[in-house]
Amino acid sequence: MTELSTTLFGLLIIGAAVGGAAVLTWFERRLLGIWQDRYGPNRLGPFGIFQVLADMLKLLTKDDWVPPFADRFVFILAPTVIVIVMMLGFAVIPFGPELQVIDLNIGLLFFLGMSSLAVYSVLLGGLASNNKYALLGGLRSAAQMVSYEVFMGLSLMGVVMLAGSFSLRDIVLAQEGLWYCIPQFLGLVTFTIAGIAESHRLPFDLPEAEHELTAGFHTEYGGMKFAMFMLGEYVGLILICCMMTVLFFGGWMGPLLPPIVWFCIKVFVLICFFVLLRAAIPRPRYDQLMGLGWKYMLPLTLINLLFTGAFLLVMES
């Protein structure tokens, strides 16, 4: 691709991600409504789709207020960080055989790096708010992300070993015969769980657990800054779903339909799955969350690595 088209494609991706996230706020509510035997937002426009516009309008017109006791600079910086890093993560996603902003040979590491940076957003937001709930939320978030980061990376190493490359494009291509969700099932499970924790969505939304911490790290946020946190969360959700598609479900590959459609279908199904998790599973206690991460998930990923390695060695010999 030319430089111009790459730039245009990048902008398109950003637009699509933001738009997708916006629609997702409505879609998630409708889906939760269906599963909870109610309607969800259904008043504005067909199926209530204009609820998105209404919400946007509301958020945009809200008073852009910074609490006088907060650290002003960091307070404003924090929500921008999460949006930026989540957007950057999309750069390495191959949406189709030719549809990729940049095919880095360390694409997977870039993604991991970007998603790790997201913790700063939450941490800084919590810290800068100068509010005990926000601080506790920030602290929880930091611990949670650090813990789940560890096996998130490790859970993907099986995929890397099988594909023999960090380039996401190569990984997709390596799944020509068999999607990695079969040989790397353990990796898939652990990555999914880590992915939920990384995007701190329910049931792992302890940083903002409203029953305990009012609204956690974004207690003091409102208006556009709050919207950016939300945007970051939903873009993160899409990103994780994209990564799962790429790493475990054969990316764009599929019969008959054009590759980008296959990609979108896979991502859509995964998003629905994430919403189902939110609808069905209660939030664990904080110690249970950490216990799950360190005591079950980390060993599981290590076992997965061990078996993958052994399998490769056997195959080679």
């Binding site: 599963w35 035997d37 109610r38 309607y39 189902l276 609808a279 069905a280």
Partner: peptide, 19 residues
């Protein structure tokens, strides 16, 4: 238990809304 919960919830896709 978690899986059963998820399945149960998923079944509600086909139930009527109470609202």
């Amino acid at each position: 238990s978690q899986l059963v919960t998820m399945w149960t919830i998923l079944q509600h896709t086909f139930t009527r809304s109470e609202t």
